Computed example of a mutant assay.
Amino acid sequence: MSKFVPKSNWVRRFCKQYGKNFFVEVDQEFMTDNFNLLFLEGENYQRSLNVILNESESESEPDAEHNYDMEAAKLYGRIHSRFILTDHGIELMYQKFQKGVFGTCPRVLCTRQKVLPIGMSDTPGKEMVRLYCPKCKEVYIPKSVRYAKIDGAYFGPNFPQMLFMAKPWAQPKRSKAKYVPRLFGFKIHPQAFGSESSDRQEADN
């Protein structure tokens, strides 16, 4: 029987912060396995990891503690992007998906389909987190400003696909509904907007 490892208090506090509800609590065992953290080493890596694991020495200066906490948050985000691709990580994120924690698709014809967080790049600092709709297969910017500073790399570009590969029954059918512009109930002919608009619509098709 594997030894029980208690959750990190730092991780719990981090995930309860305002705007951090997209994150799940990474297992302590995952973070203490060096193999899972390969190539994450960098400046202040060990100190940041110690903060996350509640193993850091207390600092006398509040400013220093704040800086260490910010560095730890960045490292935790990178660890998080790996953890949510594991079986347990996928399960925890799936539970949030089912509850609608990540929100719903803003596209009307997707009928409030629940969405998932996604990163357009796995390199930190490139782009903020986006929302992926599994019904229309489109990516959207979160409405709430609370998520404006969450790095997309902390979720990565592969997470939604991994979740639906692990749970194919959760994948909704792709939406075939398409909005058709009408005027007084009649479908508008492309030539009604002029030849230039007609040529553009034909090119789009």
Rank of each mutant, 00 (worst) to 15 (best):
Q161N: 04
M120I: 11
F22N: 08
Y18C: 07
F186W: 06
S195M: 06
I118G: 05
E61V: 03
R146L: 06
M162D: 02
D87E: 02
R107W: 08
L92S: 04
Q171E: 12
L131E: 04
H80E: 03
F184W: 10
E138K: 15
Q161C: 03
N36H: 03
V5E: 13
K99Q: 07
D87N: 07
S56C: 05
V5A: 14
D122V: 04
Y18R: 12
G77A: 08
V180W: 00
Y179G: 06
M70A: 11
G119H: 09
D63E: 14
H80W: 03
G89P: 05
T123G: 01
S198H: 10
K99R: 09
E61I: 12
S58T: 08
F159L: 07
F97H: 04
P142W: 00
L163R: 04
Y94K: 13
P160C: 04
N205K: 15
P117L: 15
E202S: 14
Q17Y: 04
D33Q: 08
F102Q: 05
E29R: 15
T123C: 03
E57M: 11
F39C: 10
E55W: 07
H66K: 13
R200V: 07
F159G: 03
G103V: 10
L85A: 01
G89D: 02
K135P: 05
G185F: 14
F4L: 15
C133L: 11
T123E: 02
A177R: 08
Y94G: 09
K176A: 12
F102W: 00
R200K: 11
P124L: 15
V26W: 05
R174M: 07
A73I: 05
R112L: 13
V115A: 05
K96Y: 15
P157Y: 14
L109D: 07
M31T: 09
A73M: 05
K137L: 15
L183V: 03
E202Y: 11
S8I: 12
P106S: 09
I188S: 01
N54Q: 03
K99A: 08
G100S: 06
G100P: 02
G152A: 11
L40M: 13
L92M: 06
I90H: 00
L183A: 00
N205Y: 09
K149R: 09
K3R: 14
